[in-house]
């Protein structure tokens, strides 16, 4: 019984783990906002990479320190369903963006099409 109690306590975090998660989140939130608000002079793509990279790290921080996902929780079903959902999200997001941007590229403006026809003839 005492071991079980210990388990549930561990599974829902301690002051320490919540504070670590919170401090990490504050730092990971502050940097992207600072880049945009202070109009830091860096290349656009570098700024976007930092925003998305830190956002992804912060999501992992939340999953670990706030949602307490571990490999052992719920006999592994929790982390399994999380990974499965992650794969689905990746397919939906990357697939949509990939297909739709190519769709735009393939929609040639009228004059380019005319030029191609002229060159072919």
């Amino acid at each position: 019984m005492s071991a079980e109690h210990h388990d549930t306590h561990e599974a829902h975090g301690s002051y320490r783990s919540y504070m670590i998660g919170f401090v990490l989140s504050v730092v990971l939130t502050a940097i992207p906002f600072w880049i945009v608000l202070a109009e830091v002079e860096i290349h656009l793509w570098l700024a976007l990479s930092i925003i998305f990279g830190l956002g992804a790290i912060q999501i992992m921080v939340h999953v670990f320190y706030f949602l307490h996902v571990t490999v052992k929780a719920e006999a592994g079903w929790q982390v399994m369903s999380l990974v499965f959902t992650g794969v689905l999200l990746l397919i939906v997001l990357v697939g949509s963006i990939w297909v739709m941007t190519h769709l735009n590229t393939n929609m040639m403006p009228q004059h380019e099409q005319m030029e191609m026809m002229r060159n072919a003839g």
Partner: peptide
């Protein structure tokens, strides 16, 4: 986190 990174911060940049 996704909303402020992707919609707000990216949108302004």
């Amino acid at each position: 986190i996704g909303v402020f990174s992707f919609v707000y911060l990216t949108g302004v940049l």
